[in-house]
Amino acid sequence: MLCYPDRRTALRATAAVAAGALTAACGTGVGAPSAPRTARAASGRPDTVRPGAAKPAPAAAPAPRRFPGQPVEIAHGPLDRTGVALTFHGNGDPALARAVLAEAEKAGARITVLAIGTWLDDHPDMARRILDGGHELGNHTQRHLAINSLPEAEAYAEITGCAERLKRLTGSIGTWFRPSQTQYASPLVQKLAQRAGYPHVLSYDVDSLDFTSPGAAAVIRNVTGTIHGGSVVSLHFGYADTVDAMPPLLEELARRELRAVTTTELLTP
């Protein structure tokens, strides 16, 4: 509570506060409130936006690309590349997801995240966190069902449901589609993905098996035992073993002169 030396001073202060509130609510003239003004530096140029003013919308995320010469379903990139793609199924505790992203960024690595739609519903801020870190974001179906065994209409709804959420959050349906609960999409699911706007389906040729929680050392062995230039690696958010494996895994990749890049970068000539 503010204290004033006498009643008259207190009344004057109260009136000044009320007048200021009225001015803020109604503007300086009659009619609609005036638009917020941008603060200006001494030079007269716009400087900082007034607190509470709307921030500019972030740029839209990249859209899917077609890669001529690549099959509909891609399991790895060119074998003569020094890049590898670490791809993560986007689900689970967002704190563990942020920890994986932080470890990747600390090492200068960029990853590809295939997000589940229900996870984006629960944690919509993660979409922008992934993109702001320089990574790419794609579609891993809406509910992570066994998509190859679903009827056509339901399988298509699983793809488009997640695509709609990505579009709403980022302005794009995402860079890639990966089928759920399977390494490879059925011919029908491949066609449905293309109908939904994804020229390619993203598979992988290295499985970390981190979702079995085998321990960080086993995750590293599973990856480094078969990885090579051009590999696409399957990993998952939501597992502490994966977080613990990230620093030594990235160090081993660097020792082998392999760079962790996004899948789009891996396939770009």
Rank of each mutant, 00 (worst) to 15 (best):
Val232Met: 13
Tyr239Asn: 09
Thr226Gln: 09
Val261Trp: 04
Leu266Lys: 03
Val261Arg: 06
Glu252Thr: 08
Thr242Ser: 14
Thr264Trp: 01
Leu250Gln: 03
Glu265Asp: 15
Val233Glu: 05
Leu249Tyr: 08
Ala245Lys: 07
Thr224Gly: 03
Leu250Met: 10
Leu249Ala: 06
Asp244Gln: 13
Thr264Val: 07
Glu265Pro: 00
Glu251Gly: 08
Leu266Asp: 05
Ala260Glu: 13
Ile227Lys: 04
Met246Ser: 08
Arg259Ile: 13
Thr264Phe: 00
His236Gly: 06
Val232Arg: 05
Ala240Leu: 13
Thr263Asn: 05
Val232Gly: 10
His228Val: 01
Ser231Ile: 10
Thr242Phe: 11
Val243Arg: 10
Ala240Asp: 15
Glu252Ser: 07
Tyr239Cys: 03
Arg256His: 04
Thr226Phe: 00
Asp244Val: 11
Pro247Lys: 02
Ala260His: 01
Thr262Ala: 02
Asp244Phe: 08
Phe237Ala: 07
Asp244Gly: 05
Val232Ser: 09
Glu251Asp: 15
Asp244Ile: 09
Gly229Met: 09
Thr264Pro: 03
Thr226Ser: 14
Tyr239Asp: 03
His228Gly: 11
Leu258Ala: 03
Ile227Asp: 11
Val233Met: 05
Phe237Glu: 09
Thr262Pro: 02
Glu265Ala: 15
Met246Tyr: 03
Pro248Ser: 00
Ser231Asn: 05
Gly229Asp: 12
Leu250Val: 03
Thr263Ser: 15
Val223Asp: 01
Leu266Val: 09
Gly230Cys: 07
Ser234His: 11
His236Gln: 08
Thr226Val: 13
Leu266Arg: 01
Leu253Ser: 05
Leu258Tyr: 07
Glu257Ile: 00
Arg259Asn: 08
Thr242Trp: 10
Gly238Phe: 12
Leu249Gln: 00
Ala254Tyr: 02
Gly238Glu: 07
Pro247Ile: 09
Glu265His: 10
Leu253Asn: 01
Thr242Glu: 09
Val261Ser: 05
Glu252Leu: 12
Val223Tyr: 01
Ala240Val: 13
Leu250Ser: 06
Gly238Lys: 11
Val243Trp: 12
Val261Ile: 13
Thr262Gln: 04
Ala245Met: 11
Gly230Glu: 11
Arg259Val: 14
Arg259Glu: 11
Thr264Ala: 11
Thr264Tyr: 01
Asp241Val: 09
Tyr239His: 15
Ala240Gln: 15
Ala245Phe: 11
Val223Gln: 04
Glu257Asn: 15
Ser234Asn: 12
Arg256Gly: 02
Ala260Lys: 05
Thr262Tyr: 07
Val232Thr: 13
Thr224Met: 15
Arg256Pro: 05
Leu258Met: 12
Gly229Ile: 14
Gly225His: 15
Thr264Asp: 14
His236Arg: 04
His228Cys: 08
His228Asp: 10
Gly225Trp: 08
Ser234Asp: 14
Val261Thr: 01
Thr226Ala: 14
Asn222Val: 04
Ala260Trp: 02
Asp241Trp: 06
Glu257Tyr: 04
Thr224Phe: 13
Met246Gln: 10
Glu251Arg: 12
Glu257Val: 08
Ala260Ser: 14
Val223His: 03
Leu258Ser: 01
His236Val: 00
Asn222Tyr: 00
Gly238Tyr: 12
Gly229Leu: 13
Asn222Ala: 06
